[in-house]
Amino acid sequence: KEFRPGDKVVLPPYGVGVVAGIAQRSVSGVSRAYYQVDFPGSRSKAYVPVEAPHSVGLRKAL
């Protein structure tokens, strides 16, 4: 896996977040693995496909 729990990442347009782990989510009846990204200071979460994280701009924070 490219990202691990605890990694600081950037996800446009949300900003800097932390990978909380990998979650299985069902979309249109198909279960897939997603990185769960939490954003400190907020209750917001984002789910990014493990198979294509760069397709939505997910990258490691510098």
Rank of each mutant, 00 (worst) to 15 (best):
D38P: 00
E2T: 11
S26R: 13
R25M: 13
P5Y: 08
V50W: 05
G41P: 13
V30M: 08
S28R: 13
V9R: 00
G17I: 02
S55T: 11
P13W: 10
F39L: 04
V37F: 02
G21M: 10
P40C: 14
K8V: 14
D7S: 04
G15S: 02
L62D: 13
V10E: 07
V27D: 08
Y34C: 04
G41D: 12
A33K: 10
I22H: 02
L11Q: 06
G29A: 02
G21S: 08
V48D: 02
G15W: 05
V37D: 00
F39G: 00
V16H: 11
P13F: 10
P13K: 09
V37Q: 00
Y34M: 04
V37K: 01
P49T: 05
R43G: 12
L58V: 03
G57D: 04
V10G: 00
S28A: 13
V56E: 06
D38G: 05
Q24T: 13
Y35R: 02
P53T: 12
A20V: 14
P49M: 06
A20N: 07
K8E: 07
A61N: 05
G29Y: 02
P40H: 09
K8L: 15
E51T: 08
V10D: 04
A20T: 13
V50R: 02
D38L: 13
A46M: 11
Y35E: 04
E2V: 12
L11G: 00
V19R: 00
Y14W: 12
R32H: 07
V10P: 01
D38A: 12
S42L: 12
A20R: 12
Q24C: 15
Q24E: 10
V9P: 07
F3W: 11
V30F: 08
Q24V: 13
G29H: 03
P13C: 14
L58H: 02
P49L: 12
Y35N: 02
S28K: 13
K60M: 12
K60V: 08
S42W: 10
E2P: 10
S42C: 13
V27L: 08
D38F: 14
K45Y: 12
E2Y: 13
V37M: 01
D7K: 01
L62Y: 13
E2N: 10
Y14L: 07
K45V: 15
R25Y: 12
V27W: 10
G41W: 11
R32Y: 07
V37N: 00
A20M: 13
G15K: 03
V27G: 04
E51H: 07
V18K: 04
Y47A: 00
V48T: 01
P13T: 06
V9G: 02
V56P: 04
R25C: 15
S26Y: 13
G21A: 11
A52W: 09
Q36G: 01
A46C: 11
A33V: 10
V37T: 01
K1P: 14
V9D: 00
F3T: 01
G41I: 08
P53F: 08
G21Y: 05
Y47F: 11
Q36H: 06
A52C: 15
V30A: 06
V16G: 04
V56Q: 08
S55A: 10
G6C: 05
P53R: 06
V56F: 11
P40I: 09
G6Q: 02
G21D: 04
R59E: 06
F3H: 05
P12S: 07
G6Y: 03
V56H: 14
S44R: 14
S28G: 14
R25P: 01
D7P: 00
R43D: 12
L11T: 01
D38C: 15
L62G: 13
R43M: 14
G29F: 03
K45L: 09
G57L: 05
L62M: 12
R59N: 04
G41V: 07
Q36C: 11
A46I: 13
H54R: 07
F39I: 03
F39H: 01
Y35S: 01
A33E: 11
P49H: 04
A46P: 01
V10K: 04
P12L: 08
V56I: 07
S55F: 07
R25A: 05
Y14A: 02
I22A: 01
K45W: 09
G29N: 04
V19A: 00
S31C: 14
A23I: 15
V50S: 01
I22Y: 06
P5A: 13
A23S: 11
G17R: 01
G21K: 10
P49R: 05
L11K: 01
V27Q: 07
P12A: 08
S55C: 14
G17F: 03
R43C: 14
Y35I: 10
V50H: 02
Y47H: 02
R25Q: 06
V19N: 00
A23V: 15
P40R: 08
G15V: 01
F39K: 01
V18A: 02
F3Q: 00
V10H: 08
Q36W: 07
V50L: 07
V18S: 06
G21H: 06
S44Y: 15
G17Q: 01
A61Q: 07
A52N: 14
R25T: 05
V16A: 09
V19Q: 01
R25H: 07
V30H: 11
Y34W: 05
S55N: 08
G41E: 11
K8F: 13
A52K: 09
L11M: 08
F3L: 05
Q36N: 03
G17Y: 02
A23Q: 12
A23R: 14
R32K: 11
V37Y: 00
P13H: 09
S28T: 06
Y14P: 01
G17A: 02
S55Y: 08
V50P: 00
R32L: 06
A23K: 13
A20S: 12
A61L: 15
P12E: 09
V10N: 05
R32V: 08
Y34V: 03
E51I: 07
S26E: 12
S31K: 11
G57P: 04
L11S: 02
D38H: 12
V18C: 09
K45P: 14
K8W: 15
K1Y: 15
S44P: 08
K60F: 11
A23P: 02
V9C: 05
V16T: 07
K1T: 15
S55L: 13
H54C: 11
V27P: 04
V37S: 02
A52M: 07
F39R: 00
F3S: 00
A33F: 14
V18E: 04
R25N: 05
S28I: 04
G57Q: 07
P49Q: 05
S31N: 10
R4C: 13
P49E: 05
A52L: 06
G57E: 04
G57V: 05
V50D: 00
R25L: 14
V27S: 06
Y47S: 02
V16L: 15
K45R: 14
V19W: 02
V48M: 03
A61I: 15
V30R: 09
G15A: 02
P5T: 12
K1N: 14
Y34D: 01
S42Q: 10
V27E: 09
L58C: 06
E51Y: 07
G17L: 02
L11I: 04
V48R: 00
Y47N: 02
G21E: 05
S42H: 09
F3E: 00
G6S: 02
K45M: 12
R32M: 09
R25W: 13
A61Y: 15
V56L: 08
S42D: 08
G57F: 04
V16P: 07
G21Q: 07
V50F: 06
L11W: 06
P5S: 08
A33T: 10
L62T: 12
Y14R: 04
A46E: 05
V18D: 01
S55Q: 09
V16Y: 15
G41R: 10
P5K: 14
S26P: 05
A20H: 08
P49C: 10
V16S: 06
P13M: 08
A46F: 10
G57I: 05
G15F: 04
K45N: 06
V19P: 00
G57M: 06
V50Q: 02
Q36S: 05
G29P: 00
V18W: 12
I22F: 06
R43W: 11
V9M: 03
L11E: 01
V50K: 03
V9F: 04
P12K: 06
P12N: 05
Y14Q: 03
K60H: 15
L58R: 03
E51A: 08
D7Y: 03
G29E: 02
Y14K: 03
A33M: 13
E2D: 10
G29C: 04
V19S: 02
A52Q: 07
G15D: 01
S31H: 08
P13E: 05
V37H: 00
R4Q: 11
V18M: 06
H54G: 10
G41T: 09
L11H: 03
K8Q: 09
Y14I: 04
L58G: 03
L11D: 01
D7R: 03
R59Y: 09
V16R: 09
G6R: 02
V30P: 14
L58Q: 03
I22G: 00
Y35L: 05
H54N: 09
S55P: 05
V10W: 14
V30G: 06
K8S: 08
